[in-house]
Design a binder for these strands. Structure first.
Lengths: 254, 254
DNA sequence: GCAACGCATTGATCTGAAGCAATGTTCCCG
DNA sequence: CGGGAACATTGCTTCAGATCAATGCGTTGC
């Protein structure tokens, strides 16, 4: 049952590999395309933990390639209520302007120390029109992102606290390890319970109690920076989690 | 205060106009691009109210251009709990395969009688690689879709029932009328209270009570198929709604 | 070694929303 | 015109989860 140490992708010291790997999963890159992507990662900047990379409402002049670290996208309501919208991993492009394409719709905060390369918005945009296959790939990646967000809508709208927490770890596992969650799988992710709570729309005390309940049911073990899926089957049933949603994706037509 | 009859876009009898308008809002189309989009709308099929256009879990062979009508994307949990993920209006392309790019992650149901043109997935995909500007536009549209879904995450995760309902109508107004909601604005949309409840993660009785409370506070008037924003300012404050999120979007670099 | 901070944990109380059940209202259809 | 179906409305009870408040505890910094 021992499947070894969990991968800690945010510690990657080969940031360029993350981006290339991300695209290579979807399409074979030509030399020109490769060069273009390579030009994105020019001058990487180091951001400390807890520092905001983007503030909601600000003008967007560039997007960011996350080279190392983990970030969270979040929104806060005027009275302080916070909702985390998702996480960014190395290789992800962060900080798109959103509905209104000039301003950031959400803030981005570094959960761990991170390294980011700023890509001027025009450069990013021109890549899209010069390299149609990259644009297509990014389109499908964006569609996937939408599907993920929508699946989380189900979680927040219709699942109870235990289901939410179970779903949370299963999704994390599927995204990090890129496969169907198995018994004993280890998830290393530098999360505080507050982050879990704000992701799942729960209060911190309630998230804590719920975690305890899952531990008492021997579904999940928590060990410092690591969570272990003791009973993947049980969690999947509890959360109505569909592993097929996270299967690998060949991009149509590429 | 009378701003006339609300537009009822789903009744459009010029479906092609919807798609062209959608793209023209973002970029000036070349002739070749125009021809390509035109080829999408070949044989339109009529779907009755309540009929499912796509079933979650099914293989995806084509995407659909919605020419007339309104549809909803939704997911159901095994025990029947339902969550509506969003709505589709004429001009929208519906039914992408999602995370796993082979299968539908959600179902799509016709809220009104609708007319759809099926676009084979390969044709859609090849359009992306042949017309980079269209791919880029679709990328930004997808990014916008993600932002919308994420804003709804805030609603479901952190807003109370009254805030949710207020937000719902404001968003609807902004999307349909494409502008900042004003006092007296009329929203015509063929909604049942069950649809509202399933969109907002509420039970039908509770949605009903909440609607009544908003009516009692003279924030909203409900008249059959029409809702009227009596006090837009009040609703905006109640929902912590940011109209700037819905401002018009020029696409960078096109 | 002590103080302070960030985070986890736990308890007691309160409340918003769900669940259940019944009744009312339209509108459609035979 | 009568019977249903679909939808809206309302009351009552229950419960999940929020809120408030305190305590524990490991790490960091002085």
């Amino acid at each position: 049952m021992d499947i070894g140490t969990a991968p800690q992708p945010w510690l990657s010291d080969a940031p360029w590999a993350a981006l290339e790997a991300k695209f290579s999963r979807y399409l074979a890159l030509s030399d020109a395309e490769r060069d273009c992507l390579a030009s994105w990662q020019a001058p990487a900047r180091v951001m400390p933990r807890r520092r905001d990379l983007v503030r909601e409402g600000n003008d967007v002049a560039c997007v960011y390639l996350l080279c190392r670290g983990i970030v969270s996208r979040y929104r806060v309501l005027p009275d302080g209520r916070r909702q985390i919208l998702g996480f960014g991993l190395p290789g992800d492009v962060i900080g798109f302007p959103s509905c209104s394409l000039a301003r950031a719709a959400a803030s981005v905060c570094c959960i761990t120390e991170s390294e980011v390369a700023a890509i001027p918005l025009e450069q990013f945009a021109s890549t899209l029109t010069r390299f149609p296959r990259i644009a297509a790939a990014l389109f499908w990646i964006a569609a996937r992102e939408t599907a993920l967000a929508q699946e989380r809508l189900v979680t927040l709208g219709r699942r109870g606290a235990e289901e939410r927490v179970a779903y949370f770890f299963l999704e994390l596992c599927a995204l990090l390890h890129k496969g169907r969650p198995r018994d004993g799988e280890r998830i290393a992710f530098p999360l505080t319970q507050e982050i879990i709570a704000d992701t799942l729309g729960l209060s911190t005390p309630h998230a804590n109690r719920t975690l305890r309940r899952l531990r008492d049911q021997r579904l999940l073990a928590l060990d410092g920076q690591e969570a272990i899926l003791l009973d993947a089957r049980g969690l999947i049933a509890l959360a109505s989690f569909d592993p097929a949603h996270f299967a690998a994706m060949p991009i149509p037509g590429l």
